[in-house]
Write a protein that binds this DNA or RNA. Structure first.
Lengths: 275, 275
DNA sequence: AGAATAGTGTCTGTAAGACAATATTGT
DNA sequence: ACAATATTGTCTTACAGACACTATTCT
């Protein structure tokens, strides 16, 4: 228990053998969300390898801590690992937004060994179809409404695609990711990360409606968004055309520099009435 | 890439050797906060062992994934590990609140090897002085204002007790923990977790003032708290005495059953004017 | 013309903040 | 009595939601 000096510190580190300790592995898993045809969708892969071979799962994998043939230590930060695994398994780039969600460490969550996973939330703008690779036999954007996740609060045990549950504890991770996205729409400009560089107020409203799963009043939303400082900035341009069946052309906006929305756009209070 | 069946899944697991993979360790570190003499304070330990021997640090340590002599695998969830390490190193129990904060995995954050740490936020009610144990040479409640963490946003590199920086990246973890606590006071009844089962509105206000580092208007706060459904419930009792230098006796309240405050108690907008 | 969509006006109820006044209690 | 603290009242301003209305563009 005595406190040692710099020399002892050096000796200690020289004698330390990592391989003697702690048989645990670390993975990253990403809840990648996008809007496709107006529907909030999540990127899932079909696992090619055990455990849970054949199950749908969130894209992810082991954080690299390996030594290469040259003996050089390949080490990546957790964020880098999440982006790498996402691209390896699906070809999708998390170029719009990436944030850490939470870490899941139930000792029984992986049958191989003790695996803790650091989950991420990613948003992707107008993505192509995924191309499966690595340990993924398939990859697909899946509308969240098709999964059996009634609300973010419930869920946990549920969560299926084509009737099957998700691998590991991925249903809970997905539910947590959805809840994070819903909450952050309220008090941050996160919704703009679902859209390209220029967008209309109606497109922004469509993001809120898809993520929250409820209708938003067009007039009040319009006025509200423009009244929040730094949320959006006018470009002076308007859309090329009005709506497909008529309608006025809309102003185009860009994301502003606000990090936080003051005042916030609060969700309507009533519980999870999807649609 | 082919998808295997249940038999292959069993064979795979039987042949899997965890020790062949992934030299990485997982620790937990806890930002334990309390109110002492009106000052928001954090529990710090002085490290007895390298690395960073002699430095002040957050209490924490390795998640147990060891095999015992009997060959039985001792595995604990991350929350359990956080509580165990806190008690081992300081004697303090995180009995009032414990939540996961974030996970830190910079490859250079620990000189021994790749160590990722899962950070927790704990709140403790009216705690005793800590008793150092385990790898801790000392342990102490330290007023947050004494550390060189100007605001939660700044900080990161700074953070000291008696002029020394904190070990590892603990200054950033502490800053993130403080920001989490400040934010959650706004929209959850977290403030009640700093207090005993019965408290006055003034005591609750003292929590907000200590955590936010700013004065709160007594009259408006009082009315506001009582107007939020489920935040507090009246006990019908009043305090034994008024203030030490005179003053009316206060009603006693208990925490209500609300999980979220509607409407929220928003922080005053202006930037980090402590005190 | 008529439908569809964008954008604005107006009203009402709720809430936040400033400030003041009243109610009790200790010295 | 006086200072200190708890609690309530009042007023002003801001904002959310409902609803109605105007503006523009497509078929």
């Amino acid at each position: 228990m005595s406190i040692t000096g710099p020399d002892e510190e050096r000796e200690f580190l020289a004698a330390y053998r990592p391989e003697d300790y702690h048989p645990v592995a670390v993975t990253v898993d990403t809840v990648a969300l996008t809007l496709r045809g107006g529907a909030l969708s999540v990127l899932l892969i079909r696992r090619a390898m055990p455990p849970f071979a054949g199950f749908w799962a969130l894209p992810g994998g082991f954080v690299r801590t390996d030594k290469t043939a040259s003996g050089h230590l390949v080490e990546e930060d957790l964020d880098e690992a999440a982006m790498r695994e996402l691209t390896e398994e699906t070809g999708i780039l998390a170029d719009s937004h990436l944030e850490q969600l939470a870490t899941y460490g139930d000792p029984t969550r992986d049958p191989r060994m003790r695996v803790i996973t650091v989950a991420y939330l990613a948003l992707v703008v107008d993505p192509p179809d995924p191309v499966s690779g690595g340990d993924a036999a398939d990859a697909a954007w899946t509308p969240v409404a098709e999964l059996n996740l009634a609300t973010a609060d419930a869920a946990a045990g549920a969560g299926a695609r084509r009737g099957r549950p998700l691998a590991f504890d991925h249903a809970r991770i997905l539910a947590d990711g959805l809840e994070r996205a819903r909450a952050k729409l309220e008090y941050t400009p996160l919704a703009t990360a679902f859209l390209g560089p220029e967008f209309t107020i109606a497109e922004l409203r469509a993001v809120y409606e898809a993520v929250w799963g409820r209708r938003v009043h067009p007039g009040n939303f319009h006025r509200k968004v423009l009244s929040v400082p730094g949320f959006v900035v006018e470009t002076g341009q308007v859309t090329e055309r009005g709506g497909p069946r008529g309608g006025r052309r809309a102003q185009l906006y860009r994301a502003g520099d606000a990090r936080l929305l003051h005042p916030a756009l609060l969700r309507p209070a009533g519980e999870g009435a999807e649609q």
